[in-house]
Design a protein around this nucleic acid. Structure first.
Length: 243
DNA sequence: AATCAGAGCAACCGCAATGAT
DNA sequence: AATCATTGCGGTTGCTCTGAT
């Protein structure tokens, strides 16, 4: 079973298994979560929490005064992992109460999908993954969940962060506009969307396949190697929808 | 050793989409 | 058909870490 196998290979943070030792982005060995950048982050940041309703300048999505916020503790992770292992995902609204967590459902869902899921790959992105992300972005725009759907083991948040912090700069350094995927000197005074842009070297809408060198452990049921078949849930790419 | 700036990323928000009644 | 509840998505924030000065 994939769940079990992945769990064994990559025990999620907070599991009762041995604390994993991972490499941070500087190649140093650290203890912490799977691919965790910030070891020992399992403490609620007092600043973030005590800011309360003023946190980040917006009202909280969950108005409950007793809802925890900020970084997740190891105990909270344990509770969430255990609950989902027993009951499965879903019913995020009622999950916190059922699992004994003082968190809102959205927070639980985000924590699970972006960090605790046993099938998350974590770790550095390969060059092949880089190229695939770039190509999918050229096709889909900022549809991170769709892009993540084609990169098993990667979360949309992870890909989004990776795009914003690395790939964007990489493309700019190559003289490519990260939004239009066209040469910078060609797009500096235009606002053309990727979907409407004329074909370029980065345009792969007619490309038959994605790189085969990428090893996917378990593609999702609807995974299509032909990117031409990629479709948004309710929008047609051929229709030239804006992204 | 202390300070500063930039990079990285977890976690938050509002809003849109979807499902239930 | 209308309304309400829930879920999912994309954009944004700000804390922590690291390297440079």
């Amino acid at each position: 079973m994939l769940f079990t196998a992945a769990w064994t290979l990559h025990p999620p943070l907070g599991s009762s298994l041995e604390t994993p030792v991972v490499e941070n982005r500087h190649g140093q060995k650290v203890t912490g979560g799977v691919g965790m950048e910030k070891p020992q982050v399992h403490s609620v940041n007092p600043v973030r929490v005590t800011k309360g309703a003023g946190f980040m300048g917006r009202l909280p999505c969950c108005e409950k005064a007793h809802t925890n916020r900020g970084a997740w503790t190891k105990e909270e992770d344990d509770r969430l992992i255990h609950y989902i292992r027993v009951h499965g995902q879903g019913s995020w609204r009622s999950l916190p109460k059922a699992a004994g967590l003082l968190r809102c459902g959205k927070s639980c869902r985000l924590r699970w999908l972006n960090y605790l899921r046993p099938d998350l790959k974590r770790g550095n992105f390969s060059e092949d993954e880089d190229q695939l992300i770039i190509k999918l972005h050229a096709l889909l725009g900022n549809k991170w969940s769709l892009i993540a759907g084609r990169l098993p083991g990667r979360s949309d948040n992870e890909i989004k962060n990776y795009w914003n912090t690395r790939i964007k700069r990489k493309l700019v350094s190559q003289g490519i506009d990260p939004q239009t995927h066209r040469p910078l000197n060609e797009t500096s005074n235009k606002n053309s969307s990727p979907a409407k842009a004329a074909p370029t070297e980065m345009d792969f809408r007619n490309a038959p396949t994605v790189p085969k060198s990428i090893s996917f452990t378990t593609p999702p049921p609807d995974f299509k190697y032909s990117v031409f078949e990629v479709k948004a849930k309710s929008e047609s790419i051929e229709g030239g929808q804006q992204f």
